[in-house]
């Protein structure tokens, strides 16, 4: 289970370096995310650009991570591939999350603001 983490200002970017978040790694993913989210400075952006597939257990793990973030902190998603978008749309979770087209745009915005 590979995740890479970068903090830019008070935003923590977590990029999933796996091609799938499925039942085989969902529990491991959920545990890692719990640690990374709990000590995040303010805003968490989960970058899913490398992830070509998630199943409902992967989706459940992402929802679990989001639920650990209390306002005013935020939990956002970026870089959903087509198959991952389908799972979010089918479960209507696309209406629950803030979803950005890609993490780089957010990071560039932060750099400009700074």
């Amino acid at each position: 289970m590979e995740l890479s983490v970068r903090n830019v200002g008070d935003t923590r970017f977590i990029r999933v370096e796996e091609s799938r978040i499925d039942a085989a790694i969902a529990i491991q993913f959920k545990d890692r995310m719990r640690d990374l989210v709990s000590d995040a400075p303010g805003r968490v952006v989960l970058d899913l650009a490398q992830v070509g597939f998630i199943d409902s257990s992967g989706l459940g793990a992402i929802v679990a991570a989001m639920k650990q973030v209390d306002a005013p902190k935020s939990f956002e998603l970026a870089g959903l591939t087509r198959s991952v978008q389908k799972v979010f749309a089918l479960t209507r979770m696309d209406r629950v999350f803030t979803i950005h087209s890609d993490a780089t745009t957010i990071e560039d915005g932060l750099a400009d603001a700074g």
Binding site: L59, G60, M66, L90, R92, V96
Partner: peptide, 24 residues
């Protein structure tokens, strides 16, 4: 169907499987 109009803390983390299957 899941009720998603809830506080974030009450969002479902599972039970999506059969609704996905039946939708498709």
């Amino acid at each position: 169907p899941h009720d998603l109009n809830v506080e974030p803390g009450n969002l479902p983390e599972g039970g999506f499987g059969w609704s996905i299957i039946r939708d498709l």
